[in-house]
Amino acid sequence: MLGALNSAPAHAHLVQTGFGAFYDGLAHVALTPADLLVVIALALLAGQRGTQAARWALFAFPAAWLAGGALGAWIPAEATLPLLTTLTFGIAGALVATDVKLRATVVGVFAIVAGLLHGYVNGATMAPGGAGALALAGAVTAVFCLLAIVSSQVTTLRAAWTRIAVRVAGSWIAAAGVLMLGWLARA
């Protein structure tokens, strides 16, 4: 199990937009599948559970991401922990798909754990690539904006088919997680 957690060596990488470190950090989240999927899945989950849960997630997740990112930049990991990052977005997707009636505080706790983990990996992979605080700020800004926009829109959905559409989106994310886990196990 521990071997699986550390199965992928950390490669310093930072998306280079040419627009500076802030936009590089922003693009890093958008172009890293595990990061993008966890933000979308959490936004769907928080929106599904109502405005209070969305508010919890909106402040807990980026704050945890920032803390994790700072920690990752300070003490870089030897590995990118793909199993854990895949599990977080897979679980979030599954929770959306099954429409489990979670309390707002539980969504908040999940947001903190996922934010710390993904932020840590984010910081650990970006820092050796030459990214500084500005890149981390860009990444956290991207997370905050995406989470705010998607989760708020989901809270406004009333029609049954739109709620089903959200669950379908969650199931796709969960499926992506399962496929990724299978690929990791094979590797």
């Binding site: 405005t51 969305a54 508010r55 909106l58 904006c145 705010a148 926009i149 708020s152 829109q153």
Partner: peptide
């Protein structure tokens, strides 16, 4: 668009 969407999101989430 980002500013408008964020403003709308904060309103919906009653922040």
């Amino acid at each position: 668009l980002l500013v408008i969407l964020l403003e709308r999101s904060f309103r919906i989430l009653q922040i």
